[in-house]
Design a protein around this nucleic acid. Structure first.
Lengths: 109, 109
DNA sequence: TGCCAGCATGTCACATCTGACATAGACTCG
DNA sequence: CGAGTCTATGTCAGATGTGACATGCTGGCA
């Protein structure tokens, strides 16, 4: 059960920060976590650019403000699924997402 | 509850196919479903290129053969989360994923 | 023909994620 | 100050995803 392990690692170690405590993670796990960080940052930026509040976005997503806050905080208990759906709800196109992902290439190849 | 709705829609309508019954979906939903289709295709391709069986990949992922089969079949009951983790496990880098996403631009902008 | 690897599909108990809600802090405006 | 908006954080019941297992189908090979 990978998710369980991930959860434990995440709980133990990190908080939004960046890529500094990737020590115990396999490269794949690191890449995955990083991906989430990237997308959540992208989401926040995008939302603000559009002048939306978390509540507004939540409405579009049919979710709630607290969940949006958690997404942007890269809370480990938020899935990539939801993150991506949120991005689409915030007006992102696939191209935008691809760009965001590629952009984050800086940290780990 | 968006996932619930999605599930119903998916159960009702589609089967791996492609983008032909996106009629009742909002653009965001369509984009999301499409994204999953794209990535699952990419996963299959990638796995085969590496000469791995579904069981092999499952081992790397710490998952099971049946789940891998479901991923490749774009079973609605497979999350984007798992799909992406599988891609990483299959040796994909973020850049590869970005490329795969961008590539699928063909169907819906 | 039998045997085996690879893939697909269904099911289930259990882990995880989710939306909703409550609550609190920061900030602005009157 | 008090009221309003925006955001962060915690909690929980219920929805959803997960790994594992069983089982069936295919094609290859001896």
């Amino acid at each position: 059960m990978k998710p369980a392990k991930r959860k434990r690692l995440e709980k133990a170690g990190w908080k939004v920060g960046s890529a500094k405590d990737f020590l115990g993670l396999t490269p794949e796990e690191a890449a995955f976590v990083e991906l989430k960080l990237t997308l959540s940052a992208s989401l926040k930026e995008r939302r603000q650019q559009h002048g939306l509040s978390q509540s507004d976005l939540a409405k579009r997503l049919r979710s709630s403000q607290s969940r949006v806050a958690k997404m942007e905080a890269s809370d480990p208990a938020v899935s990539l699924d939801l993150l991506v759906r949120a991005l689409f709800a915030a007006g992102a196109k696939k191209k935008d997402i691809a760009k965001a992902i590629a952009k984050s290439e800086s940290i780990a190849a």
